[in-house]
Structures are given as C-alpha cells and as structure tokens.
C-alpha cells in the first residue's frame, strides 16, 4: 500500500488545484482583463506591467510609465493625490452621515446628537468626516504651494493652475457649506460671520446674501440650501473640475520637473 502524503501537502495540492480551476473559468477571465495580477499565469513582465494600468478602470487615470523623479515622495509629497483621496474618504463618510440627517432647523441638531450617541460608529464616522475635511483644505492649500515653488504652473501648465485655483475655492466652499449643517452655536455664528462679509459685495451683495440664505437671515431654508449645495451641487461641480484637472496633467506631459 502506497504511503499517504502528509495532510498539509495534500491540502496545499488541492488548494492550488482549486485556484487553477477558478482562474481558468470563463467567469473569472471575463472579470479580470489581461494583465490583471489575479489572472492565471501573471508574471512580472514589461508587457503585463503596462496591461495592469491600461486594463484597470481604477488605475488607467495614470499613464503606463512616468518620469522616474515623479515617483519620488520628496518631489510631490503626495499632496495632490492625498487631496483626491481625502475627497473620496469624505464622499464615503458623507454618504454614511446622510442616512441619519435631516436638514431642517427642528431636526438637524437632534439627528447629529442621536448619530453620536445611538448609531454604531456614528461618532467615529462623523469625526472622520470633520477631520478629513479640515485636512483636505490643508492639503489642497499645501498642494498649491508645492506647485508654485516647483514652478509647475509655467507653460504648458498655465491653464491647469487656473483650474487648480478654482478647485481650491470649491474646496473652501464645500467645507464652509458643511460647517452649517450640525446646526449648533458654532455652526450658526461662524456662518453668520461668513455670510455677513458676502453681503458687502458691491452692487449685488444683498442679492447674493439673500439667495444663499434663502431669506434675509439664517434659518431652516438656509439649512436646506446649504445641504443641497454641500451634498450634491458642489461635489458635482468639483468632480467635473477634478476630471479636467487630472486630464490636463496628462495632456500637459505628466507632472512637472525635474528641477
């Protein structure tokens, strides 16, 4: 009688057999396009390295190759990428918060309070949303400083700098509109100070203020307006500008430098 193989060997054998079967199946190969590291027989070749980027919806924002200095953390400090990552993080945590929030003066504060005290992970997610928002303002600002100090706004990247300044202002507006939503003393009076300043815009200052507040003073209509601005309109606009921003980075020949 032949000697039986040890259990561990048999298990690893059947596991690799199973992997083989799964990776050979039509379903698997229909999901993972050529070059995916999950495909059968992936090996580290220049061709596959290119396929990984080209054949992935997530990665194909990137070119297949970038300048060697572009991957150095000390050059970009990852600030632009981190701003985008923080935006995604804010979107995810923001969607979670939307499930528990009603933008009316009567309910907003109570909803936030209930979220913090009775919803699993509610407090944590709200904290993350708030801190990530402040971080994003900071990282967008630092990204702008980095780009300036590298002279990266010079030809042919002038227009992308303009888009970037617009993105900075949209970021500030997103943060500011979100500031009112908790409907606590901090939110109300910070926004009062901010919108009073807008009222001093020459010629149409009063009208701007009226449209933004949905009345002559902050109230439940303001809350609804800023809520819609915060969760729908401004994200919609900023995503369009981000798309142009990223597209122009590649059209203008990748990131700038080396110095």
């Amino acid at each position: 009688m032949p000697k039986k193989q040890p259990l561990s060997e048999r298990m690893s054998q059947s596991a690799s057999q199973l992997t083989d079967q799964v990776q050979s199946s039509q379903a698997w190969n229909s999901i993972f396009r050529p070059g995916s590291i999950f495909r059968k027989g992936y090996n580290d070749s220049p061709r596959n390295r290119s396929y990984v980027v080209m054949n992935s919806v997530l990665y194909h924002l990137h070119p297949v190759k970038v300048k060697r200095h572009a991957v150095k953390v000390s050059y970009t400090l990852c600030l632009g990428g981190l701003s985008f990552f923080l935006f995604i993080l804010l979107t995810v945590t923001g969607i979670f918060l939307m499930f528990f929030y009603r933008p009316t003066a009567a309910q907003a504060w109570d909803d936030i309070y209930t979220l913090q005290t009775s919803v699993t992970f509610g407090l944590l997610v709200r904290n993350m949303h708030r801190w990530a928002a402040h971080l994003m303002v900071l990282s967008v600002f630092l990204h702008m400083a980095r780009v300036f100090y590298h002279g990266a706004y010079k030809a042919p990247r002038e227009f992308n700098w303009v888009i970037g300044v617009i993105l900075l202002q949209l970021t500030l507006l997103l943060s500011f509109t979100g500031y009112l939503l908790p409907w606590d003393q901090l939110a109300l009076w910070a926004v009062t100070v901010g919108t009073n300043m807008m009222g001093y815009t020459p010629v149409f200052g009063e009208q701007v203020r009226f449209v933004l507040l949905g009345g002559v003073e902050i109230g439940t209509d303001t809350l609804l307006r800023w809520y819609v601005l915060h969760v729908l309109m401004l994200p919609f606009v900023i995503v369009i500008f981000m798309a142009i921003h990223f597209w122009r980075v590649r059209k203008d020949g990748g990131i700038s430098g080396p110095l």
């Binding site: 801190w131 500031y179 003393q185 901090l186 109300l188 910070a190 100070v193 300043m197 003073e217």
Partner: peptide, 25 residues
C-alpha cells in the same frame, strides 16, 4: 485621530445668544 478627538458639537443653535467671540471657520 478620530478615535481620540471628537468633532465639536456645541448646544443647539440659538439666535438670541451670540457667543463671544463669534469666529468664522
């Protein structure tokens, strides 16, 4: 950071009580 530091939530907005000082973001 979010585990250890909580986002501020002051008392309900009150139009009759202006905090001193009132600061913008």
């Amino acid at each position: 950071f979010s585990i250890f530091v909580n986002a501020p939530l002051l008392e309900l907005a009150n139009f009759n009580e202006t905090p001193n000082p009132s600061k913008a973001p």
